[in-house]
């Protein structure tokens, strides 16, 4: 059972149903993409899996390998091995990237153990180099004054440093120029090649030219209404979502 397995997930926020009997399985070593119009519940799904306290889970389950994620604290879910790359990464003023990632790694160690500074910086600098991030970046405050592309690179840097089992990328491609898109995609592909399960949430087929998905799911009104291969993404790009909506309504 090496997968994230979501079964009949129903979620509300402020009395409004957002996810409705959603089912989805993402096995390790595969890339799955979720596409869908605004308001279909894509971002909600990512936040619920990450344990965001604003959402109310009515029923269903979401297991990561053998662990039930629903009901765990966000930090427990993170340490279990789920990483969420945020659509809008948040600023943490005065906390440098290097210190932040170090604290996150430290939180994964048993009490009393500590990270060796030399090893840590060696690893950090090599990851930064492969992501095309300048070394001086480490001393900048988390996301403070970053451009859109810098923020997304910083998310991927954290992802590759924390080595999660599963990754969710929530609209990581939004606001990226073509170079940044390539760098980010390389980062994600190397995660995939090392056997991790990846869920990519996106509006555009463009990203999927760089991160080739094993499966593409279309989400509408809180559930997955269609699943296909990468060609489904191309079809959506060409024809929009209306035909899916119509199908869903008819069904």
């Amino acid at each position: 059972m090496n997968s994230i397995e979501i079964k009949n997930l129903n979620v509300k926020i402020e009395d409004q149903s957002i996810l409705k009997d959603l089912c989805l399985t993402i096995p390790k070593g595969e890339v799955h993409a979720i596409m869908g119009p605004n308001g279909s519940g894509k971002s909600t799904l990512s936040k619920v899996l990450a344990g965001h306290p604003d959402y109310e889970v009515i029923s269903g389950s979401a297991k990561m390998d053998e662990t039930e994620l629903l009901g765990l604290e966000p930090d427990e879910i993170s340490r279990e091995g789920l990483f969420l790359a945020f659509q809008y990464p948040v600023e943490v003023p005065g906390v440098s990237i290097a210190n932040f990632i170090r604290a996150a790694l430290q939180a994964r160690l048993p009490k009393g153990d500590s990270i060796k500074a030399v090893d840590y910086y060696k690893k950090l600098y090599s990851k930064m180099e492969s992501l095309g991030i300048d070394k001086t970046f480490t001393s900048r405050s988390m996301n403070e004054g970053f451009s859109g592309g810098e923020k997304k690179r910083c998310e991927i840097l954290q992802m590759s440093m924390l080595e999660p089992k599963y990754c969710i990328l929530d609209e990581t491609d939004s606001g990226l120029d073509i170079d940044a898109l390539r760098v980010v995609s390389e980062g994600v592909n190397s995660m995939k090649n090392s056997g991790r399960g990846i869920l990519v949430i996106t509006h555009y087929q463009r990203l999927l030219e760089y991160i080739v998905p094993d499966k593409v799911h279309v989400m509408w009104d809180g559930k997955i209404v269609r699943t296909g291969d990468k060609n489904l993404a191309i079809e959506l790009e060409k024809n929009g979502y209306d035909w899916i909506k119509n199908e869903a309504v008819v069904a």
């Binding site: 344990g51 306290p53 966000p74 930090d75 993170s78 948040v90």
Partner: peptide, 18 residues
């Protein structure tokens, strides 16, 4: 903000550590 705390927790820090 709650979003800042959530962000830091998502990286593995407990609420108090965040």
């Amino acid at each position: 903000s709650a979003e800042q705390i959530f962000y830091m927790q998502q990286r593995g820090l407990s609420e108090a550590e965040a």
